[in-house]
Design a protein around this nucleic acid. Structure first.
Lengths: 118, 118
DNA sequence: TCTATATTTCGCCATATAACGAAACGGGAA
DNA sequence: TTCCCGTTTCGTTATATGGCGAAATATAGA
């Protein structure tokens, strides 16, 4: 029960659902997620730590950059919830918009992107 | 997105997950749910109203009693979440205990049960 | 009508949570 | 080492949430 509730509470925030959604099939660095959500870096970092603690995302460090992705082998609750999110919000306006923004973000080099973020 | 988040937030509380779980395959009146959760009637009523507002439960009034059950035709998010709950916590200690308590509750007539609740 | 009882609503309090900015941390580069 | 920059941690603030008891509501029965 604790693990299940922990996982549910991790996605009981729309910004965290947006992070899970935008990580479908790709890996992103924190500065890209910050740009997408348009929130303060400290706020986004907190959201990410909650998702990671619930094992809904995994990380990889490369130099100064942290990359996040959906787990390669998600736990049963994580798998169920990621599937639920995908099935529930694919046609959502916000999610469609996020994907458009992400296209623009990915068209800019990371060096250029990050210097305007902090 | 709003509907999905509303449904997720509705189950982002373990007492409300316990209500959904104990309503599997049956209809219960409020006093029985109060007994099961061992919380104040006003608290349980609030939990129930949140679940109802999210269309995770339906009600039926019979005299002074309100009966609640899972929806006959749940909305897509409700269906997904109810399934997720069932798959995730069937072997949970708390849920097993709740089912035992519910057996005892159902063995008592409602008249006897409710007079000790309020 | 009046009373009793099941449930809900309201008001309050304590705690949890999301947001921010400032400061700390960690790794690359000068 | 020293500086820079991406990220995280910390402290604060505003709002949301869960809990309770008291009062309101609704209905059955005397």
């Amino acid at each position: 029960m604790f693990e299940f509730m922990n996982t549910i509470k991790a996605i009981a925030d729309s910004n965290r659902v947006r992070i899970i959604s935008i990580l479908q099939g790709r890996e992103l660095c924190v500065c890209q997620i910050i740009k997408m959500l348009n929130l303060a870096p400290s706020t986004v970092s907190k959201h990410i730590s909650i998702l990671r603690q619930a094992r809904l995302i995994e990380d990889r460090k490369e130099g100064r950059w942290m990359y996040y992705r959906l787990p390669d082998s998600p736990s049963p609750p994580a798998k169920g919830i990621i599937t639920l999110i995908n099935n529930s919000i694919t046609n959502d306006q916000q999610i469609i918009h996020d994907n458009q923004i992400m296209k623009e973000i990915l068209s800019v080099s990371k060096e250029e992107l990050c210097q305007t973020t902090n």
